[in-house]
Design a protein around this nucleic acid. Structure first.
Lengths: 163, 163
DNA sequence: TATTTACCCGACTAAAATAGTAGGTTATTA
DNA sequence: TAATAACCTACTATTTTAGTCGGGTAAATA
């Protein structure tokens, strides 16, 4: 089981998409500046999200990404799964060959844990997150910040201050 | 949050200890051959387990390790915590400074997940594991295997076959 | 049709973590 | 005192992470 910035970035970016979905597609550079994630890294993550059909891309000026379906039908587990190859806590990817072809002593424990985590993250949709008070507050602050940086010479000054 | 072989090995080794606690201290080389974990790696793990007072060491011939308290009072979460520095799913170790001094958009989600995992693993003691049917079956097989290798020229032949 | 915007793709890389190895020291028992 | 097993420190190959870089390609607008 591995939950690092990769999965966190992916969920954060998808949530940003869900929050700014009203006025057309959202560009990765917008997400990059709002969430402080490198643009090229976002591109790699969205390539995987697109392959799993969680987002739809729109090319050309004014383009960007859109959620592939309603935000109530996209779950955190799907996003983490898309960028990390597995949400598996076992060492054998569930194959039960963890100790020289046999099951290791704690195999079933890790299976249980995997299921526990997966169930938890499968129960949380982007819709759920968008409605949360803590998410709304952070999003509000980010919108203010990104407006400020838009006026301050294409955001380069404030980026340097924050950076 | 990081759950890799390090944490899995630690729990497996502690469970092995709990299973063979009857006839005095258990040596790391016994655990090594039963569980297929490198001896030097086990030494590193047990240094941490000892620091957290989960095990007590007995030096000299016939020595080894003992659980520091009853197996019903040692929980999986404590073992994983002892070898991984944290069981934390957030990127900021709960400090809420994940985005340039502020809280990132998904901070609270990862806090919730951390608590979920921690609660789950805190509810499982070594005693619980020892009593499980799947654990008993695997342990039985391992005892047979290690007896066989004890007769077969100090276990080196069968180790080579398995390896 | 030229240009811009933004997605698309592959290769490369510094830093960190993982999963060990190697070799020696100290304490205890037979 | 010889053997055993914990204890300790340092080193290392491999993998993963978290990016960077440089060049494409498709679609919209002027």
């Amino acid at each position: 089981m591995r939950l690092t910035t990769k999965g966190r970035y992916a969920v954060t970016a998808m949530l940003d998409l869900a929050l700014h979905t009203d006025n057309g597609p959202v560009s990765l550079s917008d997400i990059s500046s709002r969430q402080g994630i490198s643009l090229s890294y976002l591109e790699q993550l969205f390539a995987k999200l697109r392959k799993r059909q969680l987002v739809i891309s729109v090319r050309g000026p004014g383009g960007g990404y859109r959620l592939s379906r309603d935000r109530s039908e996209i779950f955190v587990a799907q996003i983490v799964d898309a960028v990390n190859e597995s949400v598996d806590a076992t060492g054998c990817q569930g194959r039960s060959d963890c100790q020289g072809g046999h099951t290791c002593l704690t195999h079933h424990l890790w299976c249980d844990l995997s299921n526990q985590i997966h169930d938890f993250l499968s129960g949380i949709s982007l819709e759920n997150l968008v409605k949360r008070q803590d998410v709304r507050l952070v999003a509000e602050r980010q919108n203010k910040d990104s407006k400020m940086s838009a006026t301050a010479s294409q955001g380069k000054i404030s980026a340097a201050i924050i950076g």
